[in-house]
Design a binder for these strands. Structure first.
Length: 770
DNA sequence: TGTGGATGCCTTTTT
DNA sequence: GGCATCCACA
């Protein structure tokens, strides 16, 4: 076990303690992955069978890399038998094995977010509800949130709290939509992402013998990124670990940034309450960043109240201060970053891949791209439309899905008339309505159109039958034909290829390339699997179940390429770069204006923490006074979070030089000196009511949220008293007072003849007059 | 069945 | 500002 020598004292302790539950708090850059991989290697070296170790991650990439490293440590003959993968892939595997017990068939489809939304949308339509009120995306989120908290459609329907909450949000019939949605998924033999976690809970709850079986299979359970688990995941793990209590979770509460997806930071904060006698290990030495960066990040995160206290330290050099640049516009900001990259590259002999530009929102990438292009700096952007979301790819996969699972209605809807085969909207509606009427799947109707009295003329019936027979022919080959061969013949026979090649435009060409790319992926997947498992055939369902859980993150964007990385802070978690630029450090942007509660603000602060701790040597933060957003110029103060970093780690020099000249805002905005110029109608930067770093203010905010009819007069940054604004109907008015009433930003505005109006800023479209 | 112009809307997104 | 969506019309 030579490899144990490569661990420091606390890492070693965490690795070798295996007598009961343990929580490893792994600070940024402290060797978290190392502890996990070495721990598994250690368990294997102690004689534990790989097939009895369950290791759960959040990304395929993470599990792939970990498996590889374990293989290198102890040999692939062991590592390949580990139960290692994402929560979703591991539990979809288990669900396929036990599908009948919960009323599904083995080859169930997995609906992605867009499938789910599209289904919800059609249900809203069927119920004749207004989709402006019942917004599919919003309803999807509500359902998803419910499932993540272990509500089934039925328990949701019966829960009065849920009904009340929905009524408050003016969507009282959500429960009906949920119920229909669940029905329809079942009818289509499909599960959505949340089902892959909810269903195991139901399976284990209703089938103790099955639970018992898996409890015995999994002799040791490890969970990575534990701070990002939701209630559903928490409960599955707890059940599985109940019997042997051999569990180790690793994570960093300071890096919990996915609550909007249901992650519950309490899982990690309260781990030791849930698992009695759990040992706590803290990995506090940061091997990634210089002391200044680590200390700055510490001083920032210190302002959060909800956390497990730890002292992260670095023994690397002190390093340079974190630079804060204050610039006039987003354009100037991007340009400054581009110039700095060129300069640093020359100065320190960095290569482009040592740089990353991180931002809060994807929309900030555009101006950045522009500046980099102008300076001839190569870059790669993460985010945006993923490969699997592209139309031609989704269409192709829909064919595969329908072939494998004939009842998959979302897949059927996508391709029944693609490429065009004369089955129009009217026919489709008839088909689906008939299916609803008889409570069967659309495929059932297609199988016997006469029996269900499908009301179409002979010509249309022929077209439907042709489509059905084509799919059916493929379906019959699913178990006998290799995935790659079957996929190839589907692509040819369906007419996708010829449709994609209709013209010679660049788009058409790229569509064709993407189709080839997918076919290639199938080929590679099956070749790899054949080799790995020593089988001579890999079927299409096998490929499908794999691919439906893949995302963009899993496609390696040539990580060794000589390019600057552009991505959101979220996407940067787990990565590191020599130099990191954090742009757009402004109010109304970072923290996001959507973060209202103290809890949400703490998450935004953690997000900033994640951003800073990506940097190894240089961290350069910038904020612009004005920024083009949503087609209009916005003005903003520096982010409140900048004040949370201890000044001694920051360097404002550039700022001060600028301030002596034409820049009215850079004159030490971090001191509480009011700025007189009202050209931009800004308030000086100072801690305001929204500040959450001290204890009193959060309470105030909670009060606002809970009480009705509470009004708190607050100066609004964007609309200080005296601002002249223009309203579509009332014309020009002057702001008299701004407040927060029932948690909503409101303004009293004097419109002269039209009178004084009280407007909700959320809704009123006010134009600020200069 | 396809399209064009008007309208409406914007976070983050490991699966 | 840019994209998706929807309705009106060809």
């Amino acid at each position: 076990m030579d490899f144990l020598n490569e661990l420091n004292k606390s890492q070693l302790e965490a690795v070798t303690y295996n007598n009961g539950p343990s929580l490893v708090i792994a600070g940024a850059g402290s060797g978290k992955t190392r502890v996990l991989t070495y721990k598994i290697a250690y368990l294997l070296s102690q004689g534990m069978s790989p097939a009895s170790i369950l290791a759960l991650t959040f990304t395929n990439k993470a599990s792939r890399e970990m498996r590889k490293r374990i293989g290198e440590l102890v040999g692939y003959q062991y590592s390949s038998y580990l139960w290692m993968g994402t929560f979703h892939s591991i539990f979809s595997r288990i669900l396929r094995n036990e599908a009948e017990l919960i009323g599904f068939k083995k080859d169930f489809s997995i609906y992605d977010t867009s499938d789910s939304k599209s289904l919800i949308k059609s249900i809203i339509k069927e119920l004749k509800l207004d989709d402006k009120v019942y917004r599919p995306g919003n309803i999807y989120n509500r359902i998803s949130f419910a499932k993540n908290n272990l509500f089934t459609a039925q328990s949701y329907y019966e829960n009065t709290d849920m009904l009340q909450a929905d009524t408050r949000e003016r969507v009282p019939r959500t429960r009906e939509i949920f119920a229909l949605y669940a029905n329809r998924c079942k009818q289509a033999n499909a599960m959505d992402f949340d089902d892959l976690l909810l269903m195991p809970n139901l399976l284990f709850r209703d089938n103790p013998e099955v639970l018992n079986k898996y409890q015995d299979i999994f002799g040791y359970i490890l969970v990575d990124e534990y701070q990002d688990t939701n209630v559903s995941q928490y409960l599955i793990i707890r059940k599985l670990a109940e019997k042997h209590k051999r569990i180790c979770v690793v994570g960093d509460d300071a890096q919990s940034i996915y609550s909007f997806r249901g992650a519950n930071i309490d899982n990690i904060l309260k781990f030791r309450q849930a698992y009695k006698n759990a040992r706590l290990f803290k990995l506090e030495q940061n091997y990634r960043s210089t002391q200044n960066i680590v200390n700055a990040a510490n001083s920032l995160i210190d302002k959060n109240s909800e956390q497990i206290r730890k002292t992260i330290f670095s023994e690397k050099e002190v390093g340079s201060l974190i630079k804060v640049n204050s610039v006039m516009t987003d354009f100037e900001e991007a340009f400054t970053v581009a110039e700095s990259i060129t300069q640093l590259k020359k100065e320190k002999n960095y290569s482009y891949k040592d740089f990353a530009v991180l931002y809060r929102t994807n929309s900030q990438s555009r101006v950045m791209e522009e500046a980099l292009r102008k300076q001839n700096i190569p870059y790669k952007i993460y985010g945006g439309l993923s490969f699997y979301q592209r139309k031609e790819i989704k269409d192709m996969i829909s064919y595969f899905r329908l072939v494998v699972n004939n009842d998959d209605e979302e897949a059927l809807k996508r391709i029944i008339n693609y490429p065009t085969r004369g089955i129009g909207k009217v026919t489709q509606e008839k088909l689906l309505n008939t299916a609803r009427l008889y409570e069967v799947s659309a495929w059932d109707v297609l199988k016997d159109m006469l029996k269900f009295n499908l009301d179409v003329n002979a010509g249309t019936a022929k077209k439907l039958a042709d489509f059905r027979d084509m799919i059916d022919t493929f379906s019959q080959q699913v178990s006998t034909l290799d995935a790659y061969e079957l996929a190839n013949s589907i692509v040819k026979a369906s007419g996708i290829i010829s449709d994609a090649m209709t013209d010679r435009s660049a788009e058409s060409l790229s569509r064709f390339d993407n189709i080839q790319e997918l076919l290639k992926a199938i080929h590679e997947f099956s070749e790899a699997k054949k080799k790995e498992e020593g089988v001579d055939m890999v079927s299409l369902p096998e490929f499908l179940s794999e691919i439906s859980l893949l995302t963009d993150q899993d496609i390696d964007k040539d990580s060794h390429s000589e390019k600057v990385t552009l991505m959101t802070v979220h996407a940067a978690k787990g990565l590191e770069f020599k130099t990191v630029y954090i742009v757009g450090m402004e109010e109304q942007l970072f923290p996001s204006p959507y973060a209202e509660s103290p809890r949400e603000l703490e998450e935004e602060r953690r997000l900033f923490y994640v951003a800073i701790t990506r940097a190894e040597e240089n961290c350069i933060i910038s904020h612009a006074k004005s920024r083009f957003r949503n087609g209009q110029m916005n003005f903003a103060n520096p982010s409140r979070f900048l004040k949370d970093i201890d000044e001694k780690y920051l360097d404002y020099t550039e700022n001060k030089i600028l301030s002596t000249h034409s820049n009215p805002f850079s004159q030490d905005w971090n001191k509480d000196v009011p700025i007189r110029r009202n050209r931009f109608r800004q308030k000086p930067f100072k801690s305001n009511t929204f500040q959450t770093s001290k204890q009193e203010t959060p309470r105030k905010l909670i009060k606002i949220a809970d009480n009705t009819d509470e009004k708190i007069t607050v100066e609004n940054e964007k609309y200080p008293v005296g601002t002249f604004v223009k309203h579509k109907m009332f014309g020009i008015g002057k702001v008299l007072e701004t407040s927060i009433t029932n948690g909503n930003e409101k303004a009293e505005i004097d419109f002269g003849e039209k009178g004084v109006k009280s407007l909700l800023l959320k809704f009123a479209k006010l134009e600020i007059l200069e």
